[in-house]
Nucleic acid binder design. Sequence first.
DNA 1: ACCGTATTCGCAACGATTGTTGGTTCGCAA
DNA 2: TTGCGAACCAACAATCGTTGCGAATACGGT
Lengths: 147, 147
Amino acid sequence: MRTPQELSTAFRAIGLKVTPQRQVLFSLLHQNDGHPSAEAIHLAASAAMPGISLRTVYQTLNDLVSMGELQQLQLTPGSARFDPNTSDHHHLVCDGCGDVRDVYVSGLADVDVRGLDGFRVDATDVVFRGSCPTCTSATGDPSAPHA
Amino acid sequence: MRTPQELSTAFRAIGLKVTPQRQVLFSLLHQNDGHPSAEAIHLAASAAMPGISLRTVYQTLNDLVSMGELQQLQLTPGSARFDPNTSDHHHLVCDGCGDVRDVYVSGLADVDVRGLDGFRVDATDVVFRGSCPTCTSATGDPSAPHA
DNA sequence: ACCGTATTCGCAACGATTGTTGGTTCGCAA
DNA sequence: TTGCGAACCAACAATCGTTGCGAATACGGT
Ligand SMILES: [Mn+2]
Ligand SMILES: [Mn+2]
Ligand SMILES: [Zn+2]
Ligand SMILES: [Zn+2]
């Protein structure tokens, strides 16, 4: 994620105004290395600016996504996750707790792909699904705590 | 997708009944090599059995998914897609028309993955996003029809 | 054929996201 | 500094996809 300053400039450049609400969101996203939902972002933003509306959060997230400054992920049914990490990376998803982590993959260009049939590929997303260490020890451990 | 007969046996084996509605769905899915939504499956099922409820379609699809006989995909925001193709394959998604196609990838085991950190990987999903031949010629063609 | 239980269906409810409207505030270019 | 248009909020309503619920019905082992 670019800095709040850079994002402010980018917003102004396309005729969008830089409001305090947006600045709060720029700052939160810039520091965020996770994969928060809109609801989670709203919660965090509310701490810094009580009263900020969920509607405004959605609006700004959508703006950032369409500017290519933020990635929107739909890894599971349910709410979308937003990803401030714009570097070339992929994801691990824990089926147990729903946690999403970044993972870096190299050598993807060497895989053999059959069936492209004239399809133009713009992006490749790899999603590894499984169990995080916490959930693995919980489910695999016979002495695991209840539920 | 296994045959309707095999699915019937599998259902009975776990105490689930084989109803006419389910038989219609078994048959439809067995012949289907696409990635239909629940709505689309309901539409097709309604042709064979007028009056079948969308609720029943969801119920049976969910049963098949939890039995591992059917795959559920969440490739985009919006409705889930169901995949009767249980072979090891991956997907192409057209950003233009939303079409989903199968693609076969080999050599995935050779890619270098950093950041696994004790995470146990059970499945790997690769999604190629881009533009199908139809949408590519439409958008790239200066003489393309309006809108 | 009987009976217990699974299934069906229609409708209500849900979670996530977007649309609307009206009044107020505020960024920012001139 | 001013003025205009954008953005904000509140308060809803609406949409979409999916699931919960409950009364009526039907499967299938005996
Ligand atoms: Mn990420
Ligand atoms: Mn497929
Ligand atoms: Zn976990
Ligand atoms: Zn297309």
